[in-house]
Design a protein around this nucleic acid. Structure first.
Lengths: 211, 211
DNA sequence: CATCTTATTGATCGTATGATCAATAGTAGA
DNA sequence: TCTACTATTGATCATACGATCAATAAGATG
């Protein structure tokens, strides 16, 4: 327990303490959202005086931005690894949609939504948001381009299609944040939509669970 | 000018003053986002003491919620009126997509995004968000159902398709908030996606501007 | 004109935020 | 052991938020 009568934090190396602080920010963001990453909340979690956090992170807006970036980049790497193992672009795309829309990533969705909102008053965060959106779009674009190259997909503009896909995914996830109860058939419906976008026959992207 | 040396506000009828206050909240939200709707900011805009705003709106969270609701409901009415004049469901759907994705509604998009984020700490707002999402979904569902009835559209579940459409629109608009530069071909791409979703032939929803 | 109702206000409280700085105490090295 | 370095802290500042309340003054009513 971080007892209210904390005596004094053990002295640690700057590298270790800095890691503790950014880890705490990371966890705090996943548990309670980006807006919960405050000087005092991070300090309390590390069980350290607020001034120490300020010492290691002189700019909280920057800490929020880097926390956002690390969380989102980790998610991208995870999905990328999952998808990279699959043989065809069609399977990769289907798996990507299934994974990103299975509702198991509410915590990261909250962070995206908060980042969009907070980015309007935190320029460092806004820059991170742009960077991470670019990275996601690049990953999706890679799958689309591979599909076009193998004649599985059909589109004039893989880059634009990737943006479109990313927007659809983000929007549906944000929606699920509020309307988690409903939204039953999300999987098959977005599959049909993407089939239409990429010139696939109906059912080509059907999630395995539905068959 | 709201001079810093304001003497005293003219005495007005409660109805008039209440209207001024909610109007100020409304404008403030459209200009600077929902998070700019604070006790003091509203008071400054009406050129009145903060305590007066608190007198008329004892709960700021409620004022934020009602401000959100009125803005979003007005937008829905506007789009509804625009779409109602068109003869076929296909045209109505195409016009709806074109209007909602033409990038001319950044202010309202900001409000949606902030509402999703703030709703997590403002229960009244969260309820309003759910209500307004339901209202939007109902409107879209009406168009989809009409299209199914006239055999123009094909879907097993118009309600789910409407949720899907709403999510896609919201996501793409939120994306444009950050990435307004790019996203060139949004119109035709989402049209193809929706064609796939509703079993339409390619190009059936093409925006008139593209032909 | 006198009185009453009430719209309006100033002052103030409690909370939360980020930030700064001199003082303290643990630890490694001479 | 003694010293120098520095990780850590308490105290404090400035700002912003919502909320409350007694006091004031404007206008309606008689």
């Amino acid at each position: 327990m971080s007892s209210p009568t904390r005596k004094k934090a053990a002295r640690k190396s700057p590298a270790e303490r800095a890691a503790e602080i950014s880890d705490a920010a990371h966890e705090l963001a996943l548990e309670q959202g980006l807006s919960a990453v405050t000087l005092r909340a991070v300090a309390a979690r590390v069980d350290v005086a607020p001034a120490l956090v300020a010492h290691y992170e002189p700019d909280m807006q920057a800490l929020i931005a880097s926390t956002f970036a690390s969380i989102v980049a980790a998610e991208l790497a995870e999905v990328d690894a999952l998808v990279a193992g699959l043989p065809t672009p069609r399977e990769r795309l289907a798996a990507m949609l299934a994974t990103l829309l299975d509702g198991s990533r509410v915590d990261v969705t909250v962070i995206w939504v908060e980042a969009w909102a907070m980015g309007r008053r935190n320029e460092a965060l806004a820059a991170s948001v742009r960077d991470e959106m670019d990275a996601w779009q690049a990953m999706i674009r890679g799958v689309v381009e591979a599909g076009v190259a193998s004649n599985e997909f059909e589109t004039d503009d893989p880059a634009a299609a990737a943006w479109q896909l990313l927007g659809m995914i983000d929007g549906l996830n944000a929606q699920a944040l509020v309307r988690w109860g409903d939204a039953a058939d999300r999987g098959s419906l977005i599959s049909h939509a993407v089939e239409g976008m990429l010139g696939l026959e109906r059912g080509a992207l059907a999630p395995p669970s539905v068959g």
